[in-house]
């Protein structure tokens, strides 16, 4: 039954081919702007992707190595019968090999320790509160079943005052600027996920969690909920818009405030539609 080794070989080749193809396809590769497949838009994103690629290379090398051994040995040592239906080769039995076992325990152990130590800086700069940028929070984002309620300080610059701007599922910030938000949840666990910025943070009821990030590219991307939060989990999709300049952002805020403070219909507003 040499065919089995061929099947294993094909499976391994298909897997490796998929990984080799991925960087050339915007759909297969990590979430980046559609026209710039390899441009990671946030500083944290570049660090996270580096860690990801290191792990991918290590596991990829191990995968190729083990697959080569698997295919070779299942091809070479396939069970062959003589004309009497008896195996041509007698089986050999062995009982453990201490040296081998120590080696294949120590090497992965060392790799794990290396990764654990190597990533500490990245983790600290993304999650440790002491690393948070010393800027005023841009917004407070409250997750609820099933939407993101985003509250920006109004003209008075203070959060939770009557002039706040409140929008749903529509988060805006400015490029090349350290942005800090406060994340809350009003019901259950949610997870604020900005895939293009590689930011993922659980929203925990009762906690106010600072989250910070930046982007070097303007554009419109996705917000998703990354924690199964109920039947409408998939509906917690929002839009994040990164503005080119602070002026653009302020213009958006003032447009939204004008709408939020609307007290009379203008004639044109009624005729919205197709």
């Amino acid at each position: 039954m040499r065919n089995w080794s061929i099947l294993f070989a094909l499976a391994a080749i298909a897997s490796v081919a998929a990984f080799l193809y991925a960087p050339f396809s915007a759909d297969w590769w990590l979430p980046n702007p559609p026209d710039q497949t390899h441009h990671v838009i946030s500083a944290f994103g570049r660090e996270i992707d580096n860690l990801f690629l290191i792990i991918l290379f290590i596991t990829g090398a191990v995968f190729i190595g083990t697959q080569v051994v698997l295919v070779y040995s299942s091809y070479k040592f396939v069970d062959e019968m003589d004309e009497h239906g008896k195996p041509k080769r007698a089986a050999t039995y062995s009982h453990g090999n201490n040296r081998l076992e120590v080696i294949w325990t120590i090497i992965p152990g060392a790799i794990l320790v290396f990764l654990a130590v190597y990533q500490v800086g990245t983790w600290a700069s993304i999650k440790f509160r002491s690393a948070a940028p010393r800027v005023a929070p841009l917004a407070e984002i409250t997750a609820r079943q099933f939407q993101w309620v985003i509250r920006y300080p109004g003209p008075d610059g203070r959060l939770n005052s009557p002039d706040d701007l409140v929008v749903v599922n529509d988060f805006h910030f400015v490029k090349n600027k350290q942005t800090l938000i406060y994340l809350k949840s009003s019901d259950v666990l949610h997870s604020f996920y900005l895939p293009h910025l590689r930011i993922k943070q659980d929203a925990v009821p009762g906690l106010t969690i600072p989250v910070w990030f930046d982007s070097d590219t303007a554009g419109s991307f996705e917000i998703a909920c990354a924690e199964l939060c109920g039947w409408g989990h998939y509906k917690m999709r929002g839009k994040v818009t990164i503005h080119e300049t602070e002026t653009d952002f302020q213009r958006w805020v003032s447009d939204q405030l004008t709408e939020q403070n609307k007290s009379q219909l203008t004639m044109t507003a009624g005729a919205e539609g197709r």
Partner: peptide, 24 residues
């Protein structure tokens, strides 16, 4: 009015289970 339905679908009804659909 058509605008009323449009507003409800776009922004949802806050405090109920009606989600906002303008990003979806």
């Amino acid at each position: 009015h058509r605008d009323d339905l449009r507003r409800t679908i776009k922004n949802g009804l806050h405090g109920t289970s009606m989600p906002a659909f303008h990003a979806l």
